[in-house]
Simulated assay, not measured.
Amino acid sequence: MPGGPGKLGNPKKVRSFWKELPILVIIALALALLIKTFLVQAFSIPSDSMQNTLQRGDRVLVDKLTPWFGSEPQRGEVVVFHDPGGWLGETQTSDSGPVAEGIQKALSFIGLMPSAEEKDLIKRVIAVGGDTVSCKRGGKVVVNGKPLDEPYIFPGNTPCDEKPFGPIKVPEGRIWVMGDHRQDSLDSRYHQNLNNGTVSVDDVVGRAFVVAWPIDRWSTLSVPGTFDQPGLGAAAAMAPSAVGLAGAVPIVLWRRRRLIAKVRAEAEARPDRLTADG
């Protein structure tokens, strides 16, 4: 068959590694950008406000996926959030040169390094929408009447002696946050002039779930057991029940009206049927 042997004898040429390398780099960058935008992003700890849980210079990975599915911050989680307004003050200027700044911006764009320009903070969620939170000098932080046992507080610190507060009712869709280093954290306690110090859940970037760098500090950021104590979520748990009850009442009334209307219709029709049968 003409041409047959020639086709079999000329296998397709394999591209060289150097020709495929640009394509692989583009794919890798696209995947990194996708992950940074929707899944996970790296953040650098800029201060001592979360010691000893987090140290200055630690790199944490932040879960950005679950908020896309409607998940909101929970008590005890460590979260990254945008500056609600004036918490960070003036932005500090970088001391690095233009080349280093360019590399920083390029890597932060694809999520491989934290951004030097983003005005974000990292704190622990103490109370969520519907909760009542307070703390008296010499006492513990109290949420919905339950005192918190906070082993994560920086050694030597008190829960709130330097800045007592409350009671404060946290509005729905907002959270009350505090740093673990209580005497070195300008958190919700110090910004009560705006929304009582609470932060909108819309400003939350995501939950920090692991310390990824340096290697010798690798650890997960789990929710402390004190936030699982019975009754702590009672106030917040009432809201869904109330919504469910409010939704159920109209349905019950509607069904009851239909049943009454049906019984009346049958009662009105019954004499006619008896006359016809007679």
Rank of each mutant, 00 (worst) to 15 (best):
M1L: 13
P2N: 14
G4E: 13
G4W: 14
G4L: 15
G4A: 14
G4N: 08
N10W: 15
R15I: 09
S16Y: 05
F17W: 15
F17T: 10
W18P: 02
K19L: 13
L21I: 09
I26S: 14
A28V: 10
A28R: 04
L29E: 07
L29P: 01
L31P: 03
A32K: 07
I35P: 02
I35N: 09
K36D: 15
T37S: 14
F38M: 08
L39G: 01
A42C: 03
S47R: 03
S47L: 03
D48Y: 11
S49Q: 01
Q51I: 03
N52I: 05
Q55S: 14
L61S: 01
L61Y: 03
V62K: 04
V62L: 07
S71P: 00
P73Y: 10
E77A: 09
V79E: 00
V80W: 07
H82G: 10
G85A: 04
L88C: 01
G89P: 08
G89C: 04
E90N: 10
T91K: 15
T91I: 14
S96Q: 14
V99H: 10
A100L: 13
E101M: 13
E101N: 15
L107P: 06
F109S: 09
L112N: 02
K119C: 03
D120S: 12
D120A: 12
L121H: 00
L121W: 01
L121M: 03
L121Y: 01
L121Q: 00
K123M: 05
K123W: 04
K123D: 05
K123A: 02
R124E: 00
R124L: 00
I126A: 12
V128D: 11
G130W: 08
G130N: 04
G130M: 05
D131S: 02
V133R: 02
G139E: 14
K140E: 15
N144G: 08
N144D: 13
P147F: 13
L148R: 03
D149I: 08
D149C: 05
E150S: 05
Y152A: 05
I153G: 00
P155Q: 04
P159V: 04
C160W: 09
E162N: 13
E162F: 09
K163S: 06
K163V: 05
V170P: 09
P171V: 02
I175Q: 11
I175R: 10
W176G: 00
W176S: 03
Q183F: 07
D184T: 00
D184H: 06
D187S: 01
R189E: 02
Q192N: 06
L194H: 13
N195F: 13
N195R: 13
N195P: 05
G197E: 03
T198V: 09
S200Y: 09
D203P: 01
G206E: 05
G206C: 07
F209P: 00
A212V: 04
A212K: 07
W213I: 02
D216G: 08
T226D: 15
D228C: 03
P230C: 02
L232N: 08
A234G: 14
A239Q: 11
S241I: 14
L245S: 12
A246W: 14
I251M: 10
R255N: 15
L259M: 13
I260C: 06
A267I: 03
A267P: 00
E268F: 08
E268W: 09
A269Q: 13
A269N: 06
A269K: 12
R273H: 12
L274F: 11
T275Q: 13
